[in-house]
Write a protein that binds this DNA or RNA. Structure first.
Lengths: 188, 188
DNA sequence: GTCTATATCGCGATAGAC
DNA sequence: GTCTATCGCGATATAGAC
């Protein structure tokens, strides 16, 4: 145990989430979050670039995606790799936590500032996937389209999964989306 | 002529673009923009919700999309309608203005705050396309995927079109993207 | 950690347009 | 008169500089 209470970052995240639920995003100020976490405003901004970032898990997903694309054997089919990656995201972040994920999503969708950051996070992922696919031999146009498509599938699948009465595993929903989108010649 | 010089909004937009080019986005303050346009800071915020918005054309594209989806004859195939819509966007905003569009894009890509807003604008379009497609009889999952796909194609096609040595018409690039994405059973 | 700039927005007043 | 666009003042929170 050091001089400070541990897990400052986690405490800030939890304090922020609590306050957002209690008062809404806009009404919650950074000093309030810091106070509830027993820290100073300055410390908040050392951990998060801005108030919105406390709501997102940094670069975790893009970094995992980069690792996956770099480390998977070169002979694995890119589309299969992406499907596996999305299933992995589900296992690590979604499956078995529907209510938690749903609550978080609702807060994001209700707040334009958070929707905006969410959209940016998706774009960040596209920008990691694209060069990763290129490095695996996919041509530039195909890599761009496949990167965008995968993130779109992640997005649509998340929403579908949250509303799914059958409570499927997330990876099954992403697979269904990919299938619907790519395996049909008349997808409409 | 009224009491005020006309086109306050346009003057603010032009002043902002000039200053962004001269000094960069961050170094440019709202008071500077307002001053160059001969208006006050307060007036700037009456026309634009925030500093970023001065760089984007409001809801123009989503509104045009909504109109298209609502007014086209019911028997037009949704995918064909989307392809037509994207071609229209090209005709109205891109074709023949490559350099202007390129300059704008470069500023956006260089500035995280603008990239974020750009991502949000794309999401806004998705959120208009989706119910529009539903109203045209596309099933929910198909509408969600097709909406996301169309916006992804718009995005990828814009980049491709900007780099295209053949200087194709924008609509031809979007068609090529759609074809690549949807008409192939093994798109990778 | 402290200090400060500046983005953002609420309120009341004003000046023509209709 | 009523409506709309603008102005001026002031308050507050974010975010970055020192």
């Amino acid at each position: 145990m050091g001089r400070w209470a541990p897990d400052a970052r986690g405490r800030l995240e939890r304090a922020a989430l609590e306050l957002f639920v209690e008062q809404g995003y806009t009404a919650t100020t950074v000093p309030q979050i810091a106070e509830r976490a027993g820290l100073t405003t300055r410390t908040f901004f050392r951990h998060f670039a801005d108030k919105r970032e406390v709501f997102f898990d940094g670069d975790a997903i893009p970094q995992a995606a980069r690792r996956l694309l770099e480390q998977a054997p070169a002979d694995v089919d890119p589309l299969a790799l992406l499907r596996h990656g999305l299933r992995q995201v589900g296992v690590e972040r979604f499956d078995g936590r529907r209510e938690e994920v749903r609550r978080r999503r609702e807060i994001i969708l209700a707040e334009p500032a958070l929707r905006e950051r969410d959209a940016q996070k998706r774009d960040d992922l596209v920008r990691v996937l694209r060069p990763g696919l290129l490095a695996r031999g996919v041509d530039p146009l195909g890599a761009a389209l496949l990167a965008e498509t995968s993130v779109a599938v992640l997005h649509v699948a998340l929403e579908t999964w949250l509303a799914d009465p059958e409570e499927r595993v997330f990876g099954d929903v992403t697979d269904a989306c990919f299938h619907r989108l790519l395996m049909t010649s008349a997808p409409v």
